[in-house]
Simulated scan of single mutants.
Amino acid sequence: MKTNIYLNNETLIAGMTIKDGAKLENNNMALHACETPEDIIDNRKKLATSLHCGLDDFVCANQTHSSNFHRVTLDDKGRGAEQMDSAIEDTDALYTYEPNLVLCSFSADCVPVIFYNKVNGLIGVIHSGWQGTVKEITWKVFEHLTKVEHCNPSDLHVQIGMSLSQEKFEVDEDVYFKFKNLGYADDFMYYNYQTNKYHIDNQQTVKRQCELAGIPTDHITIDQTCTHLDVNGFSYRQDKQSGRHLSFIMRKSD
């Protein structure tokens, strides 16, 4: 199983699957964007095997580019793992304190955020496409964790996965203004006079949201691989029929 493993130690494993022409549907992991659901299930089972767990340990959401998040409990185990209609509805971020659950997030160009708390064992994933970013889903999740779950932001560590690069993230004025209205994204945008398009660095904007939520800059790591330019990437902008990467994190049993 070709996977970018971002973290693998005694207590945590986290990573992101990558495109692989030798696998079924190029190692696509998404039931909502596939040709043959059975092939996706097979790909997911192979990922589960590589993580030394079962597919029924996966927890998936029906992502809608929202700013909604969900605290995962053992009752959610297996949701969305083999069929879409059991996935957690209308949710783009998941977090849990439970061990041996694989929290999943799907993306092709959108920014995947994987995080963990070294002190209390909390883990989570966030799906932040440009719509999620302008809705500030990442900031809202970390604000919630601070205020409701009583996390110290200094205990949080963040891995931002590969996504569409600023070079390839071209937008018109309407999207540019949505980012500009955030008040902190100006440094992450430029205008291309030849194409009359704006270019936005969604990863850096998400990173800034993490920092604004109090997470130390040196606790934030970015995979700068571009899903459009790299052969290992699924890119919706490049191919509307593209598959999806699966970003994941699991806390191993104590």
Rank of each mutant, 00 (worst) to 15 (best):
L24K: 09
M16Q: 15
Y236S: 14
E136D: 08
Y116M: 07
R71K: 13
E25R: 03
F106P: 00
M16F: 07
I249L: 13
D155K: 01
K2H: 13
L145W: 04
E10V: 06
I123A: 00
E25S: 06
L74N: 11
Y193K: 03
G214F: 12
Q63V: 02
L145T: 02
D39C: 09
G214P: 12
V125D: 01
I13M: 13
Y176Q: 15
T205Q: 04
T138M: 11
L74V: 11
M84R: 07
K45N: 09
F115C: 09
C104M: 08
T11R: 10
K23Q: 14
H245C: 11
V171E: 08
H245L: 12
R71N: 10
R208Q: 15
L12H: 09
S50Y: 04
H32Y: 07
G124Q: 10
L182D: 12
N62F: 07
L55C: 06
K207S: 14
L164F: 01
L101I: 03
E98W: 02
G243L: 05
C151K: 04
F115N: 06
N68H: 06
A213I: 07
R71Y: 09
D186P: 13
K2F: 12
E211T: 04
K147A: 11
S165E: 02
K178W: 01
P37L: 02
E167T: 03
P99E: 07
K197V: 03
I13R: 12
A185W: 08
E25N: 07
T17N: 14
T195W: 11
H157W: 06
L47N: 14
G80A: 07
S50N: 05
T195R: 14
P153N: 10
K135D: 04
C110Y: 04
N117T: 06
G15A: 08
F248D: 04
A93E: 02
N117D: 14
H70G: 02
K240F: 09
K168F: 02
Q159Y: 14
T221A: 11
Q159S: 12
E173G: 02
D56C: 09
M250S: 12
C53N: 08
